[in-house]
Design a protein around this nucleic acid. Structure first.
Lengths: 227, 227
DNA sequence: CGTGCTGTTGTACGATCGTTCAACAACGTA
DNA sequence: TACGTTGTTGAACGATCGTACAACAGCACG
């Protein structure tokens, strides 16, 4: 507001400050992506506006179309970043955990129900992206690319747990053939429970504590392992 | 397209058809609400436009502001209708079921995973409404009003089931005091599982069959009753 | 057939949208 | 210091948004 309007000092002035600073395209692109997500957090769907985003980034309206071919490409890039931040954070939490299937699952669940994932603002962002899903091929492609990593992570942990819980001699003779449907449904159910609890908490954080959500998920996984 | 452009016949013409038909405000209001939901199903967030909605309803742009003070009021009315259709449908399914806690729960679950509730288009509508939630007091009020009925329905069924599963002599001496947390968490978990499965199916209907979703929910409830 | 009410139409208005583009200016380089 | 590259600005464009409002017309009624 104030610094923006002040003209550069005269030639004689020593502290003449530039009206803007040039940045490398890569850095500016990332700044615009961050501004997009922040704008969505603050204003919901109204944050999906070139003028709102550029104001959030502190740049002019024309700059976005210099670094991105159009608005949809910027949004898709922001969605990709948002997704990979989530999946990457969960993967890191799992990798940081002790070398035991249960420890990994616990780390995964606790990371799922902690900031920055468990955030009311984040829900606003997700909802906007979901709303674009059906009519934007770009968003569909990003979703397909990033969801794969999430499913793989979760299925891997579940497979470890189930394999440990059921000793080999109790499994069907032909190996994992018949166990697959269990793993598939188990992953579907756990994902649903996770997403549903996350959604509920974001809509009404006073309804339950994050630790209770983790406990509910653990109970589900335990029940799975018992049979 | 064609019928609209044809001018009324001359005075001598017998079949002179009116350019529009007047309707009672109540009927027209409902027609506009239906058109709003249909518009959201077809076009997502872009369907939230006076011109798109009025085109869907087959009326002119000015009519909406004759029956509703502004766009937000129409949207809130549509959200209220959409919510009460869902809750009313579930309540009716439960009331239609046999007079047994388990039968009621089964009816509830099966109705949850059947059309018109289990509909990809419906997800698009929900997502748009959720996106408005944080910045619209009208939407918040509607949500609060209608969600109450849903929670009451689900908690009631769970309470019946748990009371039947645990005979009175096994409950804590002071009565339901200590059993309440279980009921609360049970309702939270079941709601999350329901919502999550519903969300997953809508995003990718090929992932699992509705009957599998019902089975997963039943397994959850059974596990609750066993301990 | 003529009259009154009111549901309905469609144009108009100002605001804001995404995008374009000519001009500007920061900064590495000579 | 002067120049050239190019990241950046901001006005301008046409399209579309929500809303207002005067004119129109369906239909009940005399």
């Amino acid at each position: 507001m104030s610094g923006r309007g002040s003209p550069p000092r005269t030639r004689a002035g020593r502290a003449r400050q530039p009206r803007f600073v040039r940045q490398l395209p890569q850095q500016r692109r990332q700044a615009l992506i961050d501004a997009t997500i922040e704008s969505l957090k603050r204003y919901g769907h109204d944050g999906l506006s070139i003028r709102t985003i550029s104001a959030q980034a502190g740049v002019s309206v024309g700059l976005i179309n210099h670094h991105f071919p159009n608005k949809n490409q910027l949004i898709a890039a922001a969605y990709r970043h948002f997704n990979s931040e989530l999946v990457g954070g969960l993967q890191a939490a799992v990798a940081r955990a002790a070398d035991s299937p249960w420890a990994r699952m616990r780390a995964f669940l606790e990371a799922s129900f902690c900031p920055p994932n468990l955030d009311q603002d984040a829900l606003a962002v997700w909802v906007v992206f979901w709303g674009l899903y059906r009519h934007s091929r770009l968003i569909q492609r990003v979703q397909r690319d990033t969801y794969r990593g999430y499913v793989r992570l979760l299925r891997g942990m579940l497979a470890e747990l189930l394999a440990q819980a059921r000793p080999p001699h109790r499994r069907p003779r032909r190996g994992a053939r018949a166990a697959r449907p269990d793993l598939r449904l188990a992953a579907i159910g756990l994902t649903a429970l996770l997403d549903g609890l996350w959604l509920e908490w974001c809509l009404q954080p006073s309804a339950f504590r994050p630790a209770e959500a983790v406990a509910l998920c653990e109970a589900w996984v335990e029940a799975l392992c018992r049979g």
